[in-house]
């Protein structure tokens, strides 16, 4: 009965969250961001004869493409998740749903999944497809990417969703919650735009720790899974240690996997527990 209830509720939530034109906007945003961030095919192909240059192009392009793709995920996930919780609270939908014998655990899970699941699938598809058509000369890379992009997208989106739920259930007002969730997620996304080796070479020591932030960490993890290493990490900046000693390059992939799982659940689990044990409708 619980599964049947859950599926019925999930269907209604999916239809509500992804009603026109939300899905269309999300797809368009992802497509635009990807197209603008993918390097011209000619450049990649012409360099492909030189392995080092190809490696460099790969590093720049995969990271840049996934980082750019992350922006629409983060925006849409932040907006939709905070809308799903804050707007439903404000408009009385949550009150109505909690007044029928639906368990709070089920309601939270359904609302969370209704946002995360389509976004994960969309981000996985876009990452695989757009990066794939760019690097068609390296099918093994495309295959690897299509395999690894799914868990990385899911875990990143869970962090984004978790923090957005926290904000929505704290603020409980639709517009302020959406704006705050957007700002918070953009704040965490921003480090993905900083190239660690450039920042370190310019003496910005903080850059060493950017790879420990949720989204940058996800990108580094993906690079490591694909076996991509940037060029020139053996360069020793003036007065500094080798770039290869930086956390981004020295920590193994496993460390980033643990970090990503940690971030995925750091807000999602406490919010789940709070929702089913303490959350109140007290408007």
């Amino acid at each position: 009965m619980s599964v049947k209830m859950g599926l019925a509720l999930l269907k209604a939530e999916l239809e509500k969250v992804w009603s026109r034109p939300i899905l269309e906007i999300t797809v368009a945003l992802m497509a635009v961001m990807t197209i603008f961030s993918v390097r011209p095919l000619t450049e990649i192909v012409s360099h492909s004869e030189f392995s080092t240059a190809f490696q460099s192009a790969l590093t720049g392009s995969v990271s840049a493409t996934v980082a750019s793709l992350m922006l629409p995920w983060v925006i849409m996930c932040g907006v939709l998740m905070s809308l799903s919780f804050a707007r439903d609270y404000e408009q009385g939908m949550m009150q109505s749903l909690l007044s029928v014998p639906v368990s709070r655990k089920l309601l939270f899970t359904v609302k969370f999944v209704a946002v995360i699941l389509p976004l994960t699938l969309l981000s996985w598809f876009f990452t695989t497809f757009f990066v794939g058509i760019t690097f068609y000369s390296s099918p093994w890379l495309v295959l690897q990417l299509s395999f690894f992009a799914l868990p990385v997208s899911l875990l990143s989106l869970m962090f984004c969703g978790g923090i957005s739920v926290l904000i929505a259930l704290t603020i409980k007002r639709t517009i302020p919650a959406v704006l705050t969730a957007l700002l918070a997620n953009l704040f965490f996304w921003f480090p993905t735009t900083i190239r660690t080796q450039h920042a370190l070479m310019e003496g910005a020591g903080y850059a060493n720790y950017l790879c420990l932030t949720p989204y940058k960490g996800a990108l580094v993890f993906l690079d490591k899974l694909l076996g991509i290493a940037p060029m020139g990490i053996d360069i020793v900046p003036v007065g500094g240690s080798s770039l290869a000693d930086a956390l981004e390059y020295s920590l193994p992939a496993g460390s980033f996997a643990v970090l990503l799982v940690f971030y995925a659940f750091i807000f999602a689990i406490p919010m789940f527990v709070y929702f089913y044990r303490r959350f109140e409708i007290c408007e």
Partner: peptide, 9 residues
């Protein structure tokens, strides 16, 4: 409830 909420779609 006084505040009515449904799945409007």
């Amino acid at each position: 409830y006084e505040k009515l909420a449904f799945y409007d779609h």
